[in-house]
């Protein structure tokens, strides 16, 4: 057992004693009841379970929670699907997913949302030429499986968020 402390969506949790090989996915879903983060394959192959880990240096990356022990998140600051909207205000990305009918069953949505959010933040920090946008979106999202949508509307939604603020994301 290890005492785990971490910050989720800005709220500190812990220390909480957890079994050392308890997965982060089970920690979120079974211990905390935060089931917005999904379980799809348990093998980091569908990426529906990713959360955002915010690095103290300011960069962020997604991590699949199903293949990592919860204790490896000790001290981490993470964001989950439950934390994107603030004070009832959806983010531009959330609005775009909804407006585009990006998802159908929605089970992969949390993963796509987190991954695309990290992409937006990466583009904001290091804008790219417009011509490279579609490939950048593909590189970011290709690990994420969706069985319903055929992906088209997810990619269009992310692209539209970027193109709505070209000065912010593009060179």
């Amino acid at each position: 057992m290890t005492a785990l402390s971490l910050t989720i969506n800005g709220t500190p949790f812990g220390p909480i004693e957890v079994r050392d090989d308890l997965s982060m996915n089970d920690f979120l879903r079974e211990v905390l009841g935060m089931t917005g983060t999904k379980f799809g394959c348990g093998a980091a192959q569908c990426l529906s379970c990713v959360v955002i880990v915010d690095d103290p240096a300011g960069s962020s990356a997604t991590r699949p929670t199903c293949v990592m022990p919860a204790v490896s998140f000790n001290g981490a600051h993470i964001r989950t699907v439950e934390g994107h909207a603030r004070a009832g205000q959806l983010t531009a990305l959330q609005k775009a997913f909804v407006a585009h009918y990006a998802f159908q069953c929605g089970y992969c949505t949390a993963g796509f949302l987190n991954e695309a959010q990290v992409l937006l933040e990466r583009l904001e920090a290091a804008p790219i030429p417009r011509a490279g946008l579609e490939q950048a979106i593909l590189d970011a999202l290709d690990g994420h499986l969706c069985r319903c949508s055929g992906y088209v509307r997810y990619h269009e939604a992310v692209r539209d968020v970027v193109l709505a603020e070209p000065a912010r994301y593009l060179l």
Partner: peptide, 20 residues
Amino acid sequence: ARIDGIAKVTGAKLYASDFR
């Protein structure tokens, strides 16, 4: 939009696998 759109982008409990 879809009536379940906001629920699905905010991680609301919706699926059988979400309930304890």
